[in-house]
Amino acid sequence: MTEVRIHGRGGQGAVVASQILALAAMKEGKYVQSFPEFGVERRGATVEAFVRIADKKINERCKIYHPHYVVVMDPALVNIVDVTDGMRENGWILINTSKMPEDFSFHASVATIDAFSIATEKGLGSHGHPIVNTTILGAFVKIAPVVSVEALLKAIRESVSSNTEKNVEAALSAYDKVKI
C-alpha cells in the first residue's frame, strides 16, 4: 500500500487533488481511498488531504501517519507545518516552489516544481491565486511510480469540467519540468 499526504491551503484544491489522484489509481485497477483532514475549512488556512493506493481492499479507517509521499502545494507551508512528520524512510517530498531540491534539507528525497508559474502560464485560477492541483499532480506521477501519467490525464479530463485541456497541459508541463 502506498500512502500520500497532501498539504495545502483552503481554496488551493488539495482535496480535489487527492480525489483526482485516487481516480487515476482506480483507473489502473488499484483499490483507493481519499479523504480530507476534516476541520473548519477557511480559505487560506492550512489543510491536509490523504490518499491510499493498494493492490487489495483497504480496511484502514484512520488517518495516514506514516506517508510514503508528501506533497506541499504552497511553498510557505514548509516553514509553518512539520511537513515531513512521520514520513517513511526512503520517502519523497514534492514541494511547489521555484527553489531547487538541494535548497532543502529534509530526511527524505526532495523534488521541486514551480507549479505557480506553470498554472499562471496556463491561466488556471486567477493571476494572484493560481490553482495548482492538476499541475502538481503531473510532477507527482513523475516521482511516484504508483500511477501512470496516462491514467492521471484521464482522471483530470474526467474530473475537471472547465479549462480541461489547459489543466492537462499544465500536468504534462510539470511532468517534464519537475526537478529531482
Binding site: Q19, A22, M26, Y31, V32, Q33, S34, F35, P36, F38, I58, R61, C62
Partner: peptide, 12 residues
C-alpha cells in the same frame, strides 16, 4: 455510517 470516516472518504 460513521461521519468523516465514511461520509467524507472516497472509495470505489
Amino acid at each position: 455510517m460513521d461521519g468523516i470516516f465514511l461520509s467524507h472518504t472516497q472509495e470505489i
